[in-house]
Computed example of a mutant assay.
Amino acid sequence: MPDDSYRNRSLRQASSIATVTVVTVGLVLMVYGLVELIRIGTTGLYMLAGGAILISVASLLQVLASMLMKTEANLGRLHQVTLDQHDILQRLEPLVKIISDNSRISDAARSLSNRERELDALRQAIREEMYKGDWEAANYLIEQMEQRFGYKEESKSLREEMATAREMTIEEKLHEAVAHIAKLMDEYRWTRAGQEIQRLIKLFPRHERINALPAELNRRKEVRKQELLTQWNSVVQREEIDKGIEILTELDQYLSSAEAAQLQESARHVFKARLLQMGVRFGLAVQEARWRDALEIGVQIREEFPNSRIAREIGAKIETLRLRAGFIDEGGVAAKPPPPSSKVD
């Protein structure tokens, strides 16, 4: 296609010549009109206006002509591009026909191809549900494989695989639960351990390992009781009063009435020794004017041995001890306690 500068050269030249001619005439009229306006007046004004109008009209027509030629040139280029694209499509048409012929397969072959893809996607979906532990969804997909595709043997195999995976998952959770119960037993938290065992028995009433846990709990409790009894006899012989009270407090939950009666005499001896020990500490605190220590020991004696003679004596003097310890001022009003003094036993 010829270039626009060559194809429209004659039109551009004619338009330019016409414009220059009209502008020249307009300038002449304007100059002559300006001269006449100076000489005569009104007549020169008309000539001046006419020249200006000619110049304006010529300029406007030149602009319009230039725009029309550019528009025509663009349309020509678009037409040429369209022709080129048409030629390309004509050359591609045989290739497209070959591709179309090669891609034509029978409906039966296409159906078999899609069936294999759907079956592979279904197998993958079944295993994903198994890995997530969503057994209901996995079982539904296995039923779809059996009913829709007729793969009964593979469906049976997948159900067995799902049952095995499910049993492994349950066993892992049971192992974690049993380990937690064993930890509770190691910490002597028998009540909590018993609650966890009963919860597991309700969930798995026929599981052999779970049904053996109550007996294991009783065995561990008995072992702990015997350990405490051995420690009790040892501290009684060594007269370790504080340790004995600590052991006896824990041992109380394991003992039957008969067993508690057997320990009554030794326990009485330990408690009497503890009361005597605390009484001595109280007396020393009073003698040394350690009133806060004396008040603390006195309150402890009243809590642990409320029926003892020393507890009654302390109760009679408790207000005096509070006053001297600084918890009550002399007017009977509660005062802010002083900083704690160092405690000497």
Rank of each mutant, 00 (worst) to 15 (best):
S5T: 09
S10N: 14
S15F: 09
S16A: 13
G26V: 01
V28F: 15
G33W: 07
R39L: 13
T42Q: 11
M47E: 13
L48V: 08
A49F: 14
S59L: 14
L61H: 09
L64H: 12
L75D: 12
G76Y: 12
R77G: 05
Q80C: 07
V81G: 06
L83Y: 10
D84C: 03
H86F: 08
I88W: 07
L89T: 03
L95I: 10
R110S: 08
L112S: 13
L119W: 06
A125L: 06
I126H: 00
E143Q: 13
E146C: 04
Y151A: 12
K152D: 09
E160H: 10
M162T: 01
M162I: 02
A163G: 05
A163E: 15
A163V: 07
T164C: 04
E167H: 12
T169M: 14
H175E: 15
E176R: 13
A177H: 09
A179K: 09
K183N: 09
K183Q: 09
M185H: 05
R189S: 08
R189C: 02
I201G: 01
I201L: 12
I201S: 07
I201E: 06
K202Y: 02
E208V: 07
A215G: 12
A215F: 10
R219Y: 10
R219P: 00
R219E: 04
R220C: 02
V223F: 11
K225N: 05
L229Y: 01
N233W: 09
Q237I: 07
Q237M: 08
R238A: 08
E240G: 01
E246Y: 06
E246H: 07
I247Y: 01
L248F: 15
T249N: 05
Q253N: 04
S257N: 13
E259W: 00
L263R: 02
S266W: 01
F271M: 08
Q277W: 11
G279S: 15
V280T: 15
R281H: 15
G283V: 07
Q287F: 06
E288F: 11
W291L: 05
W291C: 01
L295N: 11
V299I: 12
Q300W: 04
F305V: 02
N307Q: 12
S308F: 11
I310C: 10
R312Y: 06
E313N: 13
G315T: 08
I318P: 01
E319F: 11
T320F: 08
L321E: 03
L321T: 01
L323P: 01
D329C: 03
E330T: 10
G332R: 00
P339T: 06
K343I: 04
